[in-house]
């Protein structure tokens, strides 16, 4: 174990966004249940910012953050799955093909959740998302109904995500949780193949932050 080389697999923005989203989903659920709508809307807008950042980072971030390689990785899903069943699992650098499914499902559902919240109108007309001024009362109510329904789907997929991670951790013995915290894995997990560089480019980071913060600002002040 000692003196093992450790390879960076997740850059710090990916990790920070990941855990912030996890905490925010819990807080958003709790504030909604308790009717603390001021905070629900503030945290919801924060979630919007994280999502926008993550989408930009999926284009401009370090290699394992990017969507294009993930989509390519999907082609290997059948072979990957077959190997997994035969017990011949090999760790992937970045998302494994199953993980890619989870990334796209969760980001899509989060996008729908945030998007519908922005237009949602409460039955008393008291609480409403910042973009609800663009829709009628009836349409805003439909968004609110969808917002509620979509949350259940989101919760199920978050459950599947966690279940999958736990199965890898304990059944397949591919430890994925630690690297999402520290960012690193033993380099020997990936053999000798040269890996893409994992540089976080300051200009890309700056652009992603700018787009995320600017986007949230525009949405918050649109009404």
């Amino acid at each position: 174990m000692t003196a093992d080389k450790r390879q960076l697999v997740w850059d710090w923005p990916v990790r920070l966004v990941h855990w912030s989203m996890a905490i925010l989903v819990l807080l958003l659920w709790w504030t909604a249940e308790e009717g603390i709508m001021d905070w629900h809307k503030r945290l919801g807008l924060t979630m919007l910012g994280l999502l926008v950042f993550r989408l930009v980072w999926g284009i401009a971030g370090s290699w394992t953050a990017r969507f294009a390689p993930m989509i390519k990785g999907l082609a290997k899903l059948p072979a990957y799955f077959a190997a997994l069943l035969k017990g011949g699992h090999k760790p992937s650098f970045g998302h494994n093909p199953m993980g890619v499914l989870s990334v796209f499902a969760l980001l899509t559902l989060l996008g729908l959740q945030v998007g519908s919240g922005l237009f949602a109108v409460d039955v008393d007309g008291l609480e409403s998302g910042p973009l609800s001024t663009f829709v009628s009362f009836g349409t805003g109510r439909d968004f609110a109904d969808y917002h509620e329904f979509n949350f259940d789907i989101l919760a199920v997929f978050i459950g599947l995500h966690i279940l999958a991670i736990l199965s890898y951790q304990f059944l397949i013995k591919d430890r994925l949780i630690g690297p999402m915290i520290t960012g690193k894995r033993p380099a020997q997990d990936f053999g000798e193949t040269p890996l893409p560089t994992m540089a976080v480019r300051p200009a890309a980071l700056f652009a992603a932050l700018l787009i995320a913060i600017g986007g949230v600002y525009l949405v918050a002040n649109a009404g």
């Binding site: 789907i153 199920v156 459950g159 599947l160 736990l166």
Partner: peptide
């Protein structure tokens, strides 16, 4: 969802 255990389908049906 938090515990990542079971009940997933039951939940889906309750949705």
């Amino acid at each position: 969802a938090v515990a990542g255990l079971m009940l997933l389908t039951a939940c889906g049906q309750g949705g």
